[in-house]
Design a protein around this nucleic acid. Sequence first.
DNA 1: ATGCTAAATGCAACTAAGTTGCAAATAATA
DNA 2: TATTATTTGCAACTTAGTTGCATTTAGCAT
Lengths: 143, 143
Amino acid sequence: MNTETIRNILRKHSLKVTPIRVQVLNVLLDSRVALSHADITERLDGEHVDKVTLYRTLNHFCEKNIIHKVANEERNWLYAIHIDDETHPEPDHAHAHFICDDCERIYCFPLTREAGSSVQTVKQGFLVTNQEIRLHGLCPSCQ
Amino acid sequence: MNTETIRNILRKHSLKVTPIRVQVLNVLLDSRVALSHADITERLDGEHVDKVTLYRTLNHFCEKNIIHKVANEERNWLYAIHIDDETHPEPDHAHAHFICDDCERIYCFPLTREAGSSVQTVKQGFLVTNQEIRLHGLCPSCQ
DNA sequence: ATGCTAAATGCAACTAAGTTGCAAATAATA
DNA sequence: TATTATTTGCAACTTAGTTGCATTTAGCAT
Ligand SMILES: [Mn+2]
Ligand SMILES: [Mn+2]
Ligand SMILES: [Zn+2]
Ligand SMILES: [Zn+2]
C-alpha cells in the first residue's frame, strides 16, 4: 500500500507519523493473516525496531481501533487490521476468526448476520450482548 | 460430592488416587464456574498444595478429558469439569463459554445443535471442522 | 504385612510474553 | 528555528506456567 495513504490513516486518528508506525501499518495492511509481535519484527527486517516500541505501537493502533488483537492457541497476541469492507460495516467483534489447526495461521472472516445472531438466548438469566466465534479447521493451503 | 465417587472417577481414568487429586477434583465438581489456578489454591486452603503439583494435576485431568481449560480475558487458564449431562452428549468443543463482562466469571453452556452448526461454510476453500463460541454479556448476579 | 517400583510430589530454577520507568530523540506546530 | 508534548530505546521487572531432579508414596506382588 502507498505510503501517503498510510500516513493519512495515521493522521486521521491523530497519531504522529513516524517511520516505525508507517512500516508496522504497512506490514499489517499487507498480510492476509493475523501476525504476532515476532512475525511483525521479522517482516520489518533491515530496520531494527525495539520490542517495547513495537508493543506500544500495536497497543496504540488497537486503542485507536485501526487494528485489533486476537489470541492464538498458545495464548499469545496476534494483530490484524480491522476488516473494513462494504460487506461488513459493523464494529467490534462482528467477525469470526478462523484458526488452521495445521499451520496455525489465523484469518479474520466477516460473519453473515444470521450466523452472528443465532446464539442469543442460550440460558435463562444470562444476557448475551456480544460474541466471539473461533472456527477451527484447515486453511486452503493445508488441505 | 461423595469422596468414593471421586475416587472412582480417578480409577476409571487409571489415575492413582492421591489426596491432592481428590481434593482438586472435589473443588472443580463443586464449582458452577471455571476456576483459575489461584482460585483452586484458595479453595484448597488448610492443605498446602505446591503450585507445580497443582498445575501438573490439572494438566493430567485435561489429558484424561476429565476437565478442560478455557482462557479468560487476561489469557490465563481457567479449569472446568466437562459438562456431561444428557442434553449434551457430544465430546470436545461442542459447548459455549459465557464470559460475564462485569465479574469476569466464565460459565460453560451446552449449545443447541442448530446454533452449533450455523457457521459451517463461511468462506470458499476453508474447511471448518470445529468451533469455539465465547458469549459476552452479564451473568444473573451482575444485571 | 512387607518390599518393590513406577508414578506423584515438592522445591528451586527457569522461560518468555508483555509491561513499566526513565532519559534521550523527534514530529508537529508556531 | 525554537518549543514542547509525544515517541523511542534501553534496562529492569512481572507473572503464568514449565522443567529438572531428588524425595515420597500408591498400587501391586510376594
Ligand atoms: Mn479479526
Ligand atoms: Mn467449558
Ligand atoms: Zn493452514
Ligand atoms: Zn457477572
